[in-house]
């Protein structure tokens, strides 16, 4: 018996609890809607339930960070623009630790799997750190979009008035080499 066997055995119970816990962060009136199974009528619920399942599988299979990040990204990308503080947006990850403790804690100890358990906890902590990165990237993207939108709106007029020129991608790359270009 190893920890993965236990996690596979309890997969559906743990996943359901994890999904419930995550959906509980939404207003009470909307939780039943977010449980509806339609990928296109309910993108938030679908993203969360599919995403959590894939992340769980990934943890079990020891999937690489890229694959797990992809599903974390889908969930965080949505929560980063919803009514949450940054800590609220990523809190669902920690919930998995409590659920595993509730569901499997005693059996893990009975089977002497505390080493594996500690390793799993460390990986979940790792997920949380990834979430911080993704959350920050999402927020940064929103700010970039806002700035670029203003630029795009007036770009043609400035171009016409001879007040703007574009920095080509080559020059953009040169910037990294310390070759700074000034915008007009």
């Amino acid at each position: 018996m190893n920890l993965n066997n236990l996690l596979s055995e309890k997969r559906s119970v743990i996943l359901k609890k994890w999904c419930d816990l995550t959906l509980q962060t939404y207003p009470e009136e909307s939780q039943s809607f977010f449980r509806k199974k339609d990928q296109f009528a309910n993108p938030v619920g679908h993203t969360i339930s599919e995403g959590l399942a894939s992340i769980y599988e990934g943890l079990l299979e020891g999937a690489d960070v890229g694959r797990i990040s992809e599903f974390l990204d889908r969930i965080i990308r949505v929560r980063a623009i919803q009514e949450f503080s940054p800590s609220e947006a990523v809190s669902f990850v920690f919930g998995l630790k409590s659920i595993i403790r509730e569901e499997l804690g005693s059996r893990i100890l009975q089977n002497g799997l505390s080493e594996e358990w500690a390793a799993l906890d460390a990986r979940i902590d790792g997920l949380a750190l990834l979430c911080f990165d993704i959350y920050a990237q999402c927020r940064q993207k929103i700010f970039d979009i806002r700035v670029n939108e203003v630029r795009k709106r007036s770009h043609r007029l400035l171009q016409m008035a001879g007040l703007s020129y574009e920095i080509s991608e080559d020059n953009e790359n040169n910037k990294d080499n310390g070759d700074l270009q000034e915008d007009k």
Binding site: L21, Q24, Y26, S87, E88, S91, F94, S98
Partner: peptide, 10 residues
């Protein structure tokens, strides 16, 4: 964390 997921005031 476990408080966070349960008590978000909307």
């Amino acid at each position: 964390p476990d408080v966070l997921t349960k008590k978000i005031d909307h």
